[in-house]
Design a protein around this nucleic acid. Structure first.
Lengths: 161, 161
DNA sequence: TATTTGGTTCGGGAATAAAAGAACCAATTT
DNA sequence: AAATTGGTTCTTTTATTCCCGAACCAAATA
């Protein structure tokens, strides 16, 4: 077993295509997968660019986007000017979590619709709107609970080890 | 209280902007909101076009997209050639539900990453990848449960009325 | 001081998406 | 038969996204 593992190019392409289907730009997806899979889990700018065979500007662009999002970070080694980029897994999980809170946003939107209709339509004509709003807020609350539950489970797993 | 309620244009614009932020094309979003809020809950092609002040081709396009998705349907009145379009709330909820299953898809993707690394990196170096994968599959399962729970609750609500 | 290294920034081209406009068409009305 | 109605379809315009290459820049090295 080598002390460095870098995923094969074709593996990155295949997984990249899957991520593209979730509306992630091609280069962004490939950088993400590369950093997700590489071991040790960091890579320099040049290594990324070389391995993916894309332009410097694209690498720069998406690394900076990820840095702004907080899902990426970098470390350095003394005597080496290069930055070594790695995924911030904590923030990554966090992002997933907040992404899930979208349900609550929509539920809020629906509630705005309802408020606008108040007094303008007969009572009882709001049932279907209420149902959609309810469903979303139910999902929003449920997601929050799920995330908390996961955290709790993780902590107790940790304790018991 | 009038027998017809049509939301004010500015209300549609405001809510439309919110929907645009969730990657829904502007005209699509506005048609959706208009039909969501109008009472009685249907509208003719011309009414939609007039009220939103957009081109016929755009109205036609997005109505047809929604019809294909099943989230829209239409009814007619005898002696009137026009179609009156309304949202299919059942299908709408259904779509939300299947959208939520995206979590399981991502979990699968992560599992592919893990499989690729098997044997290539030391055991114990896969923890963070495993955690992401676990989290997604946990969320996927949780969502499914939530939806079922909601259905069950709705049914029992219905029974008790 | 000149060159290399490790990137960033700017301008442009290709591809795609959104919306409009106009031509079109079948069914109805005049 | 001519005109109107209720849309659909095709073409064009406009806007946006994605990426690249080239110019650029600051820090380190020669």
């Amino acid at each position: 077993m080598k002390d460095r593992y870098i995923p094969e190019k074709q593996v990155i392409e295949n997984l990249g295509v899957e991520m593209e289907k979730m509306d992630v730009p091609p280069v962004h997806a490939r950088i993400f997968i590369l950093l997700l899979m590489v071991n040790p889990p960091y890579m320099s700018f040049e290594e990324i660019q070389e391995h993916l065979q894309v332009s410097k500007s694209s690498v720069s662009k998406y690394l900076n986007i990820m840095l702004e999002q907080g899902t990426l970070d970098y470390r350095t080694f003394s005597g080496d000017r290069r930055r070594y980029f790695y995924l911030n897994h904590e923030k990554l999980l966090n992002k997933i979590y907040t992404g899930a809170s979208k349900f609550s946003t929509i539920s809020g939107l629906m509630e705005n619709c309802l408020r606008e209709r108040e007094g303008a339509v007969p009572e009882g004509k709001n049932e279907h709107l209420k149902e959609i709003s309810d469903f979303f807020s139910f999902l929003g609350d449920g997601m929050t609970k799920l995330v908390n539950e996961y955290h709790a489970r993780k902590l107790s797993d940790h304790d018991s080890q």
